[in-house]
Nucleic acid binder design. Structure first.
Lengths: 121, 121
DNA sequence: TCAATTGTTCGTTTATGACCGAACTATAGA
DNA sequence: TCTATAGTTCGGTCATAAACGAACAATTGA
């Protein structure tokens, strides 16, 4: 297969990283790797999109320098470039992941409204 | 003039914030407000674009919930919604601004190469 | 009232990217 | 070798957004 290009640490640029993280699907993928603490195969990502689209998102994350992709059999295992990201932009990954958690909580508040609005009394 | 819409704190969403910050022009604008410590008029932003384009960027930042815009005479003064951002996504603004500083330094290293490559010796 | 300043809005062009399905590649296993 | 699995690439559609200049609006100051 074609060699996968990963940018050097010094070529990881902030606007590209922020752009890559600004898409909800990619943010979810990153959070899934982050929270699992392990490499994740594309197959395992819990996102409702076509596999061709998912493949493009994986490429976007890799080319932004956020993830590292390695081949294992027919699978591509994605891990976070935690050291590179922390060296380049200290604390950014953790801060964004914390923010993502809070943002998801806020989103859930809307989907599942509080009791006083659900006519349970 | 038309009332400027600012999203409520709870309506500030992470992907929108990251997207707004992923544009180099907007990132520069935010950094300029952040570093100056004061409100900045559109007029004062040091960016090489048409004023209509700048106006659009200012709107994008406002609608993402990153800036607050108030009118003073013919000027629009932009400030950062620091409290709202820190309440919603703790540390994000500071982390991104630190990252921006580092990213600019890295960019300068390329524009101004180190001495050993400039045949000064 | 008139002109200058500051910013917004509108119409247009151009580029990018998110998405899909179809076709393809590569590997693993029967 | 054949099939299934996992992912990539390609061609296309559609939407968004970045850019500009022109025209407009609002305020200030002469």
């Amino acid at each position: 297969m074609k060699l996968l290009h990963h940018p050097d640490r010094k070529d990881i640029r902030l606007p590209s990283v922020l752009y890559a993280l600004s898409d909800p699907v990619r943010l979810h993928m990153v959070a899934q790797i982050y929270n699992s603490g392990e490499e994740q195969a594309c197959k395992c990502f819990d996102v409702p999109i076509a596999k061709s689209t998912l493949s493009q998102h994986a490429r976007a994350l890799r080319e932004a320098g956020i993830t590292h992709t390695r081949a294992q059999g027919t699978q591509r295992l994605l891990s976070l470039r935690t050291e590179d990201l922390n060296a380049r932009f200290p604390g950014l990954l953790d801060t964004v992941m914390n923010a993502y958690r809070k943002d998801q909580q806020e989103a859930n508040l809307r989907t599942d409204p509080p009791l006083e609005e659900t006519q349970q009394g």
